[in-house]
């Protein structure tokens, strides 16, 4: 495996730093009452930033669930618009999914995996060369839709990469009680598609493998299944208490080295940058996150009429009447 160029490593480190700052800040914002809830990705920065970074944003399209903030940042999505989902502004967030190349955030585990296959097959039918990147976790791998998606993708030879972040936990249930046989990647063999297990905390491995898989898919060789082994260092969400199902000692033992520290040591060890340069990145990340906080707190609530406006492209008389009645009977004009 060729080492990544120095400037890419620095770019990745800057992204991961900002993601970690924003992730930590979001947990604090929940405690402060700025946002009602959040699903932290602490420990999964390499898997998310590395895979998102590997995409070609002029060609590819990503399909997230609800813990892919690092992917969104790597795709340069408007982070205020992204975080708006956690502020309870709008379920899918306020970013434009079409121009962001990131489907709307959605809360159904494995709900978007088939969409990635459909979008990818659309690339084939339209004679275009993009690939879909489908994000889901070890818990979602238990859903029937994942089986249907992989079978459809293999039959259709769709240009889709299934990127599983196996973070060890589905809320309180560990992988060994979730994934029979112990490996999601091994299931690829059953569909005749390559299944690759990687160290999801090694960002170079993530970037290389995802690039290889996307290029393979784009060139018409069909889907790839990547299982990135990582660890959810935080709770499932700000409403979760991991102390009820794992001890701190178990966490330390299972989590392994921090993916951020690994990249930092790699950069420092190779003399790509010094501590001072990395400290500068920390300051820039803190400033960027502060801007997100300012914009997010300034968002206000969406107009109530939007409840009605986005149900259909062509609304109905019945819905229009309900909207009219809501306007009359509420204080919101």
């Amino acid at each position: 495996m060729e080492p990544l160029p120095a400037e890419e490593l620095l770019g990745l480190y800057a992204l991961m730093t900002e993601v970690r700052h924003l992730d930590r800040a979001a947990v604090a914002w929940q405690r402060q009452g700025i946002i009602p809830g959040y699903a932290p990705l602490l420990g999964q920065e390499a898997a998310q930033v590395g895979s998102g970074f590997a995409m070609d944003r002029t060609l590819d399209f990503a399909f997230p669930t609800y813990r892919e903030m690092g992917v969104a940042r790597a795709l340069d999505v408007d982070m205020t618009g992204y975080m708006a989902t956690h502020k309870a502004s709008w379920h899918g967030g306020l970013y434009n999914p079409v121009t962001s190349r990131l489907a709307p955030i959605q809360a159904v585990v494995a709900g978007s995996v088939l969409h990635a296959v459909g979008w990818a097959h659309g690339q084939t039918l339209a004679g275009e060369s993009g690939a879909a990147l489908s994000y889901f976790g070890d818990g979602a791998s238990s859903q029937g839709d994942v089986h249907e998606a992989m079978n459809f993708a293999a039959i259709l030879r769709a240009p889709v990469v299934f990127f599983v972040q196996n973070n060890g936990w589905a809320i309180s249930v560990p992988t060994e009680k979730q994934v029979a046989g112990g490996s999601v990647a091994a299931r690829g063999a059953g569909y005749g598609i390559p299944g690759v297990t990687i160290d999801g905390n090694d960002i170079e491995a993530v970037v290389h493998t995802t690039r290889w898989a996307l290029e393979r898919a784009r060139s018409g060789q069909g889907p790839v299944l990547i299982e990135a082994l990582t660890y959810r260092r935080g709770p499932h969400s700000t409403a979760d208490d991991p102390g009820r199902y794992r001890t701190l000692d178990e966490e330390r033992e299972s989590a392994g080295p921090d993916p951020m520290e690994r990249l930092r040591d790699r950069i420092l060890g190779a003399g790509i940058a010094d501590m001072e340069a990395l400290a500068g990145m920390e300051r820039e990340a803190a400033a960027a996150v502060d801007q997100v906080r300012i914009k997010l707190t300034g968002l206000g609530t969406q107009p109530g009429a939007e409840m009605f406006n986005f149900v259909f492209q062509e609304s109905t008389d019945s819905l229009n009447q309900q909207a009219e009645q809501w306007r009359k009977e509420s204080d919101h004009d």
Binding site: F61, V113, L114, H115, V117, G118, A120, H121, A149, F152
Partner: peptide, 8 residues
């Protein structure tokens, strides 16, 4: 699910 992705 395929239909949803194709519509996208």
């Amino acid at each position: 699910g395929l239909a949803a992705g194709l519509a996208m």
